[in-house]
């Protein structure tokens, strides 16, 4: 049975820039149908973790299995939502076009996106409530809308596993709600989603599992078990007051 394998199985992932370790021996297993948040202070290696899993940065050691197979073999089942700021939004292209980029991998060489691809893209846009803006130029979008375009581009890939880098960063309330709904829909469909998240307060509400990361994995597992004041304190170091406030909020 396929389901015996966790959706994501990362072992001993280690990344070093020059000689400085950025990630030390990180293990993470995520079962199917789980929403997992990665939290940790700035420079903790959250983005690096996702990029190393996706092969975008070179890992000094470690292995990544997706549903029991090497990532390179399962690439088509994995979707990636990069940080919004990683691209130039003044690029001359439309919302629909960006979403269709998610299908380029399936199209392969030479083939152009056609009618089917357009329909798929429109459906993905509808899922994030953006179908009316399909023809809009991407520079005319608000931050939240840009984020939803990126999400639609990942949705259209019809993947099993999603990696999202700070999707909640600087978005409006409408978008935040749209993303949360989307995450829940994905979970209902049995998909697995890993989200780099910076808002500690919403972790218990939005996610099932959490990994606390600061160069090494401090803890990972069910939110109610590992999202403790003690673990947060270990992760965030000295900023105890801030951590306690969050913990207090969580208690209440």
């Amino acid at each position: 049975m396929k389901q015996e394998h966790p959706a994501i199985d990362v072992r001993d992932l280690t990344v070093a820039y020059r000689e400085k370790p950025v990630l030390w021996d990180v293990d993470l297993q995520v079962p199917s149908g789980v929403l997992l948040a990665i939290v940790g202070p700035n420079g903790a290696g959250k983005t690096t973790f996702i990029k190393a899993v996706l092969g975008l940065v070179h890992a000094a050691a470690g292995s990544v299995l997706i549903h029991g197979e090497a990532y390179s073999a399962k690439r088509k089942r994995v979707a990636y939502v990069p940080q919004r700021g990683s691209v130039d939004w003044d690029f001359p292209t439309s919302v629909l076009d960006v979403v269709m980029m998610g299908l380029y991998g399936q199209l392969g060489w030479l083939r152009r996106p056609g009618k089917t691809e357009k329909e798929k893209a429109l459906r993905a846009l509808a899922e994030v409530g953006m179908e009316e803006l399909a023809d809009r130029q991407i520079s005319q979008l608000s931050g939240g809308q840009q984020q939803r375009v990126f999400l639609a581009r990942a949705l259209v890939q019809q993947a099993e596993v999603y990696f999202m880098d700070e999707p909640f960063q600087g978005v409006d309330a409408t978008t935040e709600k749209a993303i949360v709904d989307l995450l829940r829909n994905l979970r209902e469909d049995g998909k697995t989603v890993v989200v780099v998240h910076h808002d500690l307060q919403t972790v218990p509400e939005y996610f099932d599992q959490v990994m606390l990361l600061n160069v090494r994995r401090i803890a990972s597992g069910l939110v109610e078990e590992v999202f403790t004041e003690e673990n947060l304190r270990t992760t965030y170091g000295g900023r105890v007051a801030f951590v306690s406030a969050v913990a207090a909020r969580k208690e209440s």
Partner: peptide, 19 residues
Amino acid sequence: WKEFKLVSFDPDFAATIGM
């Protein structure tokens, strides 16, 4: 065309879809 376009717009994403 589509390879040039995607690599110009978002090279990281292009890599994740196997380009």
